[in-house]
Each structure stands twice: as C-alpha cells, then as structure tokens.
C-alpha cells in the first residue's frame, strides 16, 4: 500500500468521524451527548491538521479545544442546566427554514469551490525568502513560531491583550455580588 493510499484512507476515516461528530452535535437530544460528539469532531479535525502538515496546530487544537474549551462548556452545563430531564425541547420553531438556509449555503459554497481556479504557489512578499526555501526541511512548529514572533508579533500581542480582556470580562460577568 502506497503512502498516498494510506493518506486517502486516513482522510476518509477522519472525514466520516468529523461529519458524524458534527451531526451528533446538532441531532442528539441530550446536551451532554452533544458535547461528547463535539469532542469526537474536534479530534477528527486535529487529525486533518496532522494530515495537512500542521502538527503544531493539531497539538494546539487538542490542548485548547478539547482540553480547555470543551471542559469549560461541560462546567457551564453543570452549572446551568438540568441535563437529565428528558422533556427539554432542544429545538425552536425554525428547524425547516434553518436546514433550507444552510443547504442553500452549502450548495452555493460548493459551486464557488468547484468553479474557482486557485493560484498555486502564492508568493507572500514580506515572507523571508530563506524561510520559504527552508520550509520543506524545517519543523512546522519552528515555522509557525518564527512567524508569530517576527512577522506577526503585533497580532500575537493583540491576541494576548484580547485574552486578558476576556479573562477580566469573564470574571466580572460571572462574579456573584454579596448582596444577592
């Protein structure tokens, strides 16, 4: 079996996992089962990242999404809903319009994808030439780290300020006042 075949097999495996996980989020009635299904989907997307030579982001995906965000969501469920009640209606009155709108979006996007000719080897002018040349040999993590620390240091700093703001905002919003 050639490596290309193996990559194709992994692709179909992860694709099936991701689609089933995503459908589970929308279809399952118990919200906790939806969370577990979402975790499956996130792991499958991390698998795609590995297939696409983005190992650093695969690790980030597993650590941040699965390790932090989904655990946070589970805590929010714990704090706010009675998940074991069977009679909770999970959907609103817009089931059919929602599906129609999303299908229309999917079909439009599909036709845009198949009719677009992408420019191969798009050259980014301010990307250092030595890095572009060396990128075939270098670690993916090193390339991303170099970009974040040098070319994209300003967005990186803005992202940290955003995280600080979110931290303060979360504390302020969830803080229980003494008098109630």
């Amino acid at each position: 079996m050639s490596p290309a075949d193996l990559i194709a097999i992994y692709f179909y495996f992860f694709a099936a996992l991701a689609i089933l996980g995503a459908l589970g989020v929308v279809v399952l009635r118990n919200i906790f089962h939806s969370v577990l299904s979402m975790i499956v989907c996130l792991f499958a997307v991390a698998g795609f990242f590995v297939l696409l030579n983005a190992e650093f982001l695969a690790a980030v995906q597993v650590i941040i999404y699965v390790g932090a965000i989904m655990v946070l969501i589970i805590f929010a469920i714990l704090l706010s809903t009675r998940i074991m009640r069977r009679d909770i209606v999970q959907t609103n009155a817009y089931v059919l319009p929602g599906i129609i709108v999303s299908l229309a979006f999917l079909v439009t996007t599909f036709f845009v994808i198949i009719s677009t000719r992408f420019v191969e080897d798009y050259h980014v002018p301010f990307y250092p030439a030595w890095l572009a040349e060396a990128s075939e040999k270098l670690d993916n993590t090193m390339i991303v780290g170099w970009s974040l620390m040098a070319t994209y240091s300003l967005p990186f700093e803005i992202a940290s300020i955003l995280l600080l703001m979110a931290l303060i905002g979360g504390v302020v919003l969830a803080h229980r006042k003494e008098d109630d």
Partner: peptide, 12 residues
C-alpha cells in the same frame, strides 16, 4: 462542517 454548524446555530 460549516453548514452543519449553521443549522445548529439557527435551530437550537
């Protein structure tokens, strides 16, 4: 995946 997420946002 985006469309499935969009269904969830509208429907839930």
């Amino acid at each position: 995946l985006f469309s499935i997420g969009a269904v969830g946002v509208i429907v839930k």
